[in-house]
């Protein structure tokens, strides 16, 4: 049954030539272009539906009450599905963070660029190596060689300003966007 020969005069694009052909080419082009625009714009809703939804975005900032956190203590809060470390630093810890020679750091950053108030260090608790959560929040946790955090996955050590000091991680713990809304409250995000 299957016929594969073209009927005479219907050989695809090789028809009658001249003016008719150019008008047809233009039509093909215009139709193809408009169709392509249609398909391309129809694709966008599918892609965009996978971006954060309105409820996710609306919860993107949260308020944290710092009043109960005593000096030397730390709390972990969840923000955008990630742990955020809030540490109420002691004078000794602040001192340690400030006196480091920046030239010795893998990812140099002065302590005052990483805090808004010296006693409060707020960082995203995710190791910049491959995404584990470093230890050091609980009093019983190991805090590494620099009194900050120690990542058990591949042995990264962070100091009391959350800066990488030793181990495979390439960068300091990330400081999230935040602002103090009062002396004892911050808004993350």
């Amino acid at each position: 049954m299957a016929q594969t020969t073209h009927p005479p005069g219907t050989g695809g694009h090789a028809a009658s030539g001249g003016e008719g052909a150019s008008r047809r080419d233009f039509l093909y082009l215009a139709t193809g272009a408009v169709g392509a625009i249609g398909v391309a714009s129809a694709v966008w809703p599918f892609i965009d539906s996978m971006n954060p939804a309105a409820d996710t975005l609306a919860l993107a900032s949260i308020d944290v009450d710092l009043a109960p956190v005593q000096e030397g203590q730390a709390i972990t809060v969840t923000w955008r599905g990630k742990p955020v470390f809030v540490r109420h630093r002691t004078a000794k810890e602040i001192e340690e963070a400030r006196t480091v020679n920046l030239g010795d750091l893998r990812d140099p950053a002065a302590d005052d660029t990483r805090v808004k108030k010296p006693e409060w260090l707020i960082v995203v608790g995710i190791c910049t190596h491959l995404g584990c959560v470093p230890l050091g929040q609980k009093p019983t946790d190991p805090r590494g060689d620099y009194d900050g955090w120690f990542c058990p996955c591949h042995g990264s050590h962070y100091d009391t300003a959350g800066r990488i000091r030793k181990g495979p991680a390439p960068a300091n713990l990330v400081v999230p966007q935040y602002a103090f809304t009062s002396d004892t409250a911050v808004r993350l995000g």
Partner: peptide
């Protein structure tokens, strides 16, 4: 309902 209200273009899909 979350698809209808919050997901980007969710109502359309």
């Amino acid at each position: 309902e979350r698809i209808m209200r919050d997901v980007n273009y969710g109502w359309l899909l």
